[in-house]
Simulated scan of single mutants.
Amino acid sequence: MIWKAEKNGCYSVRSAYRTCIEDIINNEHLRKPRYWSGIWRLKVPPKVKNLVWRICRDCFPTRVKLRSRGVNCPSGCVRCEDPHEDSYHILFHCPSAVVTWQTANLWHLISPSLNQFDNAPDNIFNLLQKLSAAQIEISVTIMWSIWKARNLKLWQQVTDSNFTILERARHLLEGWRNASRKQVHLNPTTSDSGSSSASQYQCQSQMEKIMCYTPSCSVDLGEALALNHAIQWIHELQLSNVDFEVDSKRVADYFNKGRGDVTEFGSIMDNSLNFCNDYLTNSHVEFIRRQENEVAHTF
């Protein structure tokens, strides 16, 4: 028996769930055509991206949202006496938040958007498209810090000053950037040129390598080969602390969870796993969406 929802023919709960969600259950109400890629392209800590995504998906646990889900709690703002604590109020309307934006010298960039939209998701999507990369990165990190201040006030009765909120945001963003610079990120990707396939690796945007092999192969097999060659190249460079970023979810999932695929793909991936276990024990393989893969788009 072959399970058609997986390329290796083996049943998995993940693929069964995906089949149910996409083919059986009507989930059109969950699909929101917004500028989602703008969120995932942000060069900010993952927890900041997650917070922004939750706000824009309207699943942010404000008091108003909790009450709409049947939770018995007050509806008023934790930081002021406004009776309606939703994400728009917390981030843009609460007097404490407004003073924070003014202190950060960002209020003049944010306030025009508030005249156009009366909810947090639309304002955030508008800012993602209007502000520069540096401005939106510090802005969304400040949003995270404002939410942190709200939770500290609610659960620990701690009242943060505006200086503390801004310093926490700055420290988080700078610390994450410094940590990212200390670690090598290598991004293997492939392209098909008809009679042959090409692999390109980019290391910290400073070194890159291109390899071509014949004949042309499937996308997943090409991604597996690209990762395999990239791993060996990193070993030749005598590097050890490396994050490999791939835009093939099948490759990333197999590397982190899988074993036992008897196809050519599985053989190549097993070879990569064994090589990393022997020589690159502190390295990882992570999945990134193709629209975020700058190497693939410049190839």
Rank of each mutant, 00 (worst) to 15 (best):
M1W: 07
Y11G: 07
R14Y: 12
Y17A: 11
R18V: 11
C20Y: 14
C20N: 10
E22A: 15
E28Y: 08
L30Q: 12
L30C: 13
K32R: 14
P33E: 04
R34T: 09
W36N: 02
R41K: 15
P45T: 07
C56P: 09
D58K: 13
R69V: 02
G70Q: 05
C80T: 02
H84T: 02
H89N: 07
I90R: 00
A97M: 02
T100P: 07
W101V: 05
A104P: 04
A104L: 03
W107K: 00
H108T: 11
H108A: 09
S111L: 05
S113G: 03
F117P: 04
N119T: 09
N119E: 11
D122L: 12
F125L: 11
L127C: 08
L131A: 08
A133I: 15
I136R: 04
I142E: 03
N151K: 05
Q157P: 00
V158C: 08
L166M: 03
R170F: 13
H171F: 13
L172D: 11
L173W: 06
G175S: 11
N178D: 12
N187C: 15
P188G: 06
S191K: 12
Q202F: 10
S205L: 12
K209Q: 14
I210H: 09
S216E: 10
E223F: 00
N228L: 07
Q238V: 07
V242N: 02
D243W: 09
D247C: 01
K249Q: 14
K249V: 00
L273D: 06
N274A: 13
F275V: 05
H284W: 01
E286C: 06
I288K: 04
